[in-house]
């Protein structure tokens, strides 16, 4: 079943670019009863690898500012360290609550703004 769900998550990722991770996390936490920290860590790893496939679609895209890429690179290194530290110290239900609030608010904003 996990292979079918993962394949479906991949299709959603290919179609909509963002939000598919929440599908995977929901399945892991609430259906497979995987521990929250583990499920979210797994989702980050899996979707970041599959994002490499998505970025290949931009191979001919030249309108990129390399200064911004450099800034993102350094910010990502610092903030991912910080993010994993914060997550480690938060209780599972608090992480899920924050995630739920973010999902609902972002979805409502997307409905109004489109995209």
């Amino acid at each position: 079943m996990i292979y079918v769900v993962s394949f479906l998550v991949g299709i959603l990722n290919g179609l909509f670019a963002s939000g598919a991770g929440q599908f995977l996390v929901f399945y892991l936490i609430y259906i497979l009863k995987t521990e929250t920290h583990k499920a979210r860590a797994l989702s980050v790893s899996v979707l970041s690898i599959s994002s490499i496939i998505s970025i290949i679609g931009y191979k001919n895209y030249t309108n990129v500012n390399y200064l911004y890429l450099l800034i993102i690179f350094f910010i990502a290194i610092i903030s991912s360290y910080l993010g994993t530290k914060i997550m480690k110290n938060l209780r599972a239900e608090i992480i899920n609550l924050i995630s739920g609030i973010l999902i609902v608010s972002l979805t409502i904003i997307r409905f109004f703004l489109g995209g």
């Binding site: 993962s6 959603l12 290919g14 599959s50």
Partner: peptide, 13 residues
């Protein structure tokens, strides 16, 4: 998990 996700992503695109 990553292999089915990658194949799914390609299929989705």
């Amino acid at each position: 998990i990553v292999l089915p996700v990658i194949f799914g992503s390609m299929f989705g695109i």
